[in-house]
Design a protein around this nucleic acid. Structure first.
Lengths: 188, 188
DNA sequence: TGTACATCAGTGAACGCGCGTTCACTGATGTAC
DNA sequence: TGTACATCAGTGAACGCGCGTTCACTGATGTAC
């Protein structure tokens, strides 16, 4: 084997990393293979030595783009949600949650992309579920689903607003979750 | 004026209507001017007699695509949210909320598109706010923002899932909102 | 009432461009001797 | 230790295609007389 055995794998990871940032920043449809390769300091012809298609890259990029969300691994759901619904996350989609950056595009993607998306959503739900303090199974499911929905929707909506209302809206979403997640358990 | 004075306006509306469905169904980037015009029973060359650019069409389509959301005009926020977070809405983006269908694409659109988007979000917040039962200004803001975030995020995430978990996730989001919106007012 | 006309909504072919993908090649590398 | 070689990661030009946009035109229409 004429090349260091890890060389190709490292290059492939460089492409995925470049794609993860580029896609989240400008959208899957708006970013071409050529731009991804340019960002990875490669020429675009070499792309197909690593991936069978752009589609395969998108599907593979998704897990990478979800790996470490801003705020890192908190032990508390509310703390995690508040880091998610923050101005830095709103202003920097390129290092943030891929679902909030690309969700509505990915939903319409190929079978492969949609499979990857579904897996990532389930994984994220599972992670958040572990942060919900002990309660009935039903209540944990609700809190997890509701919190993630509020996080993703809140960030997308905040990015769609302009000026001071952006920060106000984010703060309202955080306050809503603070109330909702700390509310004492109720009937049924 | 050789043509009925309302004729051109009617044609323009037909184009907007066709675009509203096509964009929500398959995405702004994936649907070309030619397809929109075909859906409106016109040839694509005629498009520019009505719009200066595809971009202008997108911006104009947004308000139309938000006009009447499924469930119609309810008097209750929870009822509205439950109609929004429903299987029919999930399965039929082409007649549903444009933000849930196109949100992450629109956020990266032109100035004109983003202005239109921001206006529609503020309008939607204003509509929902009127449904929140009397409470402190702060609490109304929170409930409105949190509910809309949960609705939009919940629908996008549900569409990203597959099989039985879709319906379960939607039900969890509805239950979460039921709890959160009916919770008694608490300190600060 | 009938006809010639001006208007302009809509047609359809064409344009340049950037996309995803292919492929013949180059040249840096580790190995064999 | 030094050199010839096989490998294959990466290069760069080319491809067909569909996009948004343009434009010379056609032909249905209401008006003037």
């Amino acid at each position: 084997m004429p090349w260091p055995k890890e060389h190709k794998h490292a290059t492939r990871e460089r492409i995925v990393k470049a794609a993860a940032a580029a896609f989240r920043e400008r959208g899957v449809g708006e970013v071409g293979v050529a731009e991804v390769m340019r960002r990875a300091d490669l020429t675009h012809g070499g792309f197909y030595a690593h991936f069978a298609s752009k589609d395969e890259l998108v599907a593979e990029t998704l897990p990478h783009a979800m790996e470490r969300l801003r705020g890192g691994a908190s032990q508390d759901l509310l703390v995690t949600a508040e880091a998610y619904l923050s101005a830095p996350h709103m202003d920097h989609p390129e290092v943030g949650c891929a679902i909030a950056a690309l969700g509505t595009e990915l939903v319409r993607g190929s079978r492969r992309v949609r499979q990857s998306l579904a897996r990532e959503i389930r994984k994220r739900l599972h992670e958040l579920r572990a942060l919900v303090p002990s309660a009935s199974r039903e209540r944990r499911d609700r809190q997890t689903a509701g919190a993630l929905a509020c996080m993703v929707g809140g960030l997308i909506l905040a990015r769609g607003l302009k000026g001071p209302v952006q920060a106000k809206f984010l703060a309202d979403c955080r306050a809503f979750l603070r109330d909702a997640l700390s509310a004492t358990e109720k009937g049924n």
